[in-house]
Design a protein around this nucleic acid. Structure first.
Lengths: 230, 230
DNA sequence: GCATATTTGTCCGTATGTATA
DNA sequence: CTATACATACGGACAAATATG
């Protein structure tokens, strides 16, 4: 549990509960706690040096973000997304991401935003060269988060942050998440180029195909896994 | 504060913090605590007979639902939605509600769902006859919640529940919320009839007009109020 | 600007209730 | 059925920040 102790250095910003939640969130998203793991209060309380009350507040935050599930009088566990969750996650993605792209005005000035998205794509390509599949997955997902951010709605943004965090959990449940993201990188670039050339309709169409393919592949890998571990 | 004490009778279901949150949520949504009101810990702790820790957990829940805002070392306050919030709320509504209606399959069996929506419309008409404007507002909003529920996505459903709860706050900030909902009831019925006759495209178009009008009227009432109370 | 009172943030000890071996 | 482990909830403590005079 020494890795957790390293994180104590980060405890210096806002409210303690939020900070603890930040630490746990990163750890969960990166796979440090596998889906299904119970997060006992005693355990982490001692490791992070915070009280139970504070820790419970952090748990509440993450539970409402969908990363943890809370069972009354049993405790909190890292969520294990079901196949139905995968379907719903992609339903939301189709709804929100495609609408965000389609509704872009052709006269809006997206200079700064597009630069940031380009930078994310570069980060993804860098990760691919270095064969860092975790970073590649992170960058790929951030790409889609930034696509949605183009719509400029804080609430849609927050929804998407939640849904994409849950998607990270799905990846951890998958059989072989390592190379899953690689083929999608070039498709992200394709979508980006279409947006840049202001072909929003074409971008939305390509995005929809992207999501269809990803969902299908994910569902297959998922059910295959379930077949092996019942 | 005796009205709060009456609510103690309802304390009999899940976790205490959740129950407290339920009580406060209803009270906030129905206008018992006006936007901007501070919810002191001592005050409610004594009124509901729960400990401070539990109460703080309930506050966290409501803060993450967007009904309360938390200021560090100052406490929690009932949120005062800004004009920008109104715009964003309606952006989300346009995105989600119209898409939900438009994507309805013409072969789906919506019997049970449509019956429930019809019942909500009846409740609204009943409230109108009795001139109970609070109930009318509740029923009108529930109508839209149920429209979204037709899409069958738990995540979209949860998003909408949150956004519509925030909208209730907007109504409480408004100058004269009483009769605001009345003209929209007949338009809801119109939308419902279009859905029932499976003219989903027409329903979506009518819904979009509805939302445009509502947002405009709301924004005007809002800025008028702000002009009077700076 | 200063001193005081109030409120919040955090933590701890403990008693009770609940689930599981 | 008992025992154990754990979560839930409470009450009290103190430091830190804020509001008040």
């Amino acid at each position: 549990m020494s890795a957790l102790e390293d994180d104590r250095a980060l405890l210096d910003r806002t409210s303690t509960a939020e900070k603890v939640a930040d630490i746990l969130r990163v750890r969960i998203i990166e796979g440090g706690f596998a889906p299904g793991t119970q997060l006992g209060e005693r355990l982490i309380e001692n490791a992070l040096g915070v009280s139970r009350n504070t820790l419970r507040e952090a748990f509440r935050l993450l539970t409402h973000e969908g990363l943890l599930v809370h069972q009354l009088n049993r405790g909190v566990f890292v969520r294990v997304p079901s196949v139905e969750d995968v379907a719903d996650i992609y339903a939301v993605r189709r709804l929100v991401e495609c609408a965000a792209v389609r509704r872009l005005g052709s006269d809006d000035d997206l200079g700064v935003e597009l630069d940031r998205i380009a930078e994310t794509l570069h980060a993804a390509e860098r990760a691919e060269r270095e064969e860092d599949w975790l970073d590649l997955g992170t960058a790929n997902i951030r790409f889609h988060q930034e696509i949605v951010a183009l719509s400029g709605s804080p609430r849609v943004d927050a929804l998407m942050r939640r849904v994409l965090a849950e998607l990270r959990l799905v990846f951890h449940v998958m059989a072989d998440p390592q190379r899953f993201h690689e083929p999608y990188l070039s498709r992200n670039r394709e979508i980006f180029d279409l947006i840049k050339s202001r072909d929003h309709r074409g971008a939305a169409r390509e995005l929809e195909r992207y999501l269809d393919d990803a969902e299908r592949e994910l569902t297959e890998a998922y059910t295959a896994k379930r077949a092996r571990t019942p």
